[in-house]
């Protein structure tokens, strides 16, 4: 006889096949000290296979968090303004009417790029400003890779300038399909087109005025008291 002990309720030889107080019965098996059977053994019919490998692909929930129903809407608080990145394809919105603005390019000490200010029409005629204002066409664009919107101000004051002329051509082409704008020395910009179509862009949910407001946020000159004007006049 093995020296096993039948758990919390040790069983003697006399206990075999004797009913317990709760009505269950004890039986002996060849190798165990004792087995306690319940009064009734519920029978459960298996509903389906328990083998996870039977159809493992069906158990794969994926992990594409971008399509799982959690929607977070991003609200833009600002938009970049400038020429397109030469490495990225972009599209431009085809405008029914061009939006022409006058801007003031305020030099930034230590930076090659000036800060561009929108100047309110009421100030355009001021002789002290007229000489520094620049006429630009504002083109609304988005990049292909990131869908990031930006505003492209193209100078239109100097039609003989190769940079301006080619930029306008590229902006026009960008209204029809994705293009890339790459510097080409004295020729101005060159245009690069994808060999295969890149599909339609995802445009941001912004009105034209919202677009411009975000692009010129904090950079609107609507008074002669604006610090940029005061600086221009030597007041600061």
């Amino acid at each position: 006889m093995a020296k096993s002990v039948a758990g919390g309720a040790p069983l003697g030889a006399d206990d075999a096949r004797q009913p317990l107080e709760d009505g269950r019965q004890v039986v002996e098996t060849p190798s165990s000290g004792g087995v306690v059977l319940p009064q009734e053994t519920p029978v459960v019919e298996p509903a389906a296979s328990l083998n996870p490998f039977a159809d493992l692909a069906a158990l794969n929930l994926g992990a594409n968090y971008t399509t799982d129903g959690v929607k977070v809407k991003r609200k833009l608080l600002a938009l970049p303004m400038g020429s397109p990145d030469k490495k990225q394809f972009f599209r431009a919105i085809r405008e029914e009417t061009d939006f022409i603005a006058r801007v003031y390019e305020r030099p930034v000490p230590g930076d090659l790029k000036p800060t561009v200010y929108f100047v309110a029409p009421s100030l355009h005629s001021d002789p002290s400003l007229a000489r520094v204002l620049k006429m630009v066409k504002l083109v609304r664009c988005v990049y292909h890779d990131t869908h990031a919107p930006f505003l492209w101000p193209i100078s239109i004051g100097q039609r003989d300038n190769a940079w301006s002329r080619t930029a306008l051509d590229i902006a026009s082409a960008a209204a029809d399909g994705y293009v890339r704008c790459v510097p080409d020395g004295r020729n101005g910009y060159a245009i690069e087109l994808p060999e295969d179509p890149l599909g339609e862009p995802t445009w941001p949910e912004l009105t034209r005025s919202e677009w411009f407001d975000l692009a010129f946020k904090g950079r609107v000159i609507d008074s002669f008291e604006h610090e940029a004007i005061r600086e221009l006049r030597g007041a600061l």
Partner: peptide
């Protein structure tokens, strides 16, 4: 579900080629 219990010491276990309970595809 059945309530059966099994308590076995080593010298019994080593003589067994399989566990004293079902380990088939319908049992977890």
């Amino acid at each position: 579900r059945s309530g059966r219990r099994h308590l076995l010491a080593y010298d019994e276990l080593v003589r067994m080629k399989t566990p004293p309970f079902d380990i088939g595809p319908q049992t977890v």
